[in-house]
Amino acid sequence: MKKKLDVEKMTYAVLAIACFFIFWWFITTFTPAKETTPGPVEVIQLLFTSFFEPIGSHVITGHLLVSLRRVLVGFSVATVLGIVLGVAMGASKWAEAIFKPIFELLRPIPPIAWISLVILFFGIGEVSKYILCGIGAFTNVTLNAYTGAQNVDPELVGCARMLGTSERDIFFRVVLPSCTPQIFAGMQVALSTSWMAVLAAEMVGAQEGCGWMIQRGSDTLNITLVMVGMIVIGCVGMLLAAVMRVIERRLCAWNIMES
């Protein structure tokens, strides 16, 4: 009975996507929209050629790598800092009292709102991109690390203490591992926020990268390029999320074995 359901699901999925493409093709061939919007054929064509013919200074993979690099740098640094701050705030009342008010003051400001200030401060170079990605990631990771550390089961800690574990070991072998799932959830959101931040930063001031590519398409009224950019960006987004999930599965399995 399960097999029948899967076949049914597949059929509907294929049907839905086919309808989508037909609808798209129809609108861009037979209605006034054809003046403004490219059809699926042109988009797919450009998608293929972009792997060989450069847009601006790179082929599409080049732009991808540039954007990814920016995200990775910003994200990694921010994650480390975020985990440190978050866990500190969650584990120590002093850290919480000192840092939380400032954090809560700055947190509601969306990363994108920081763009202007960061650009004024650091210029349009790579550093400002890293920082913007970092801001995007930092808030989420910190918040999650904070709640994770706050919610460590007091029984676990008490148990370890009773068994004579040193405070330092309690921190590294009980508190930290039990925060890990929560921290990972935060990292996943943080990664997608970083990805969005880098795109925004590239659309505002850059010479390369996926965000720049889309903006270039917009500036030159090249909707096909815009759509190709969107597709690529969507795929990368999915990839990043999938990679995070794989890493989480491995790290948390390690976690279970360790503790």
């Binding site: 997608s192 659309m203 965000g211 950019g229």
Partner: peptide
């Protein structure tokens, strides 16, 4: 998967 910002242009 397409981030909202990518829709802007």
């Amino acid at each position: 998967p397409v981030p909202t910002i990518a829709w802007i242009p």
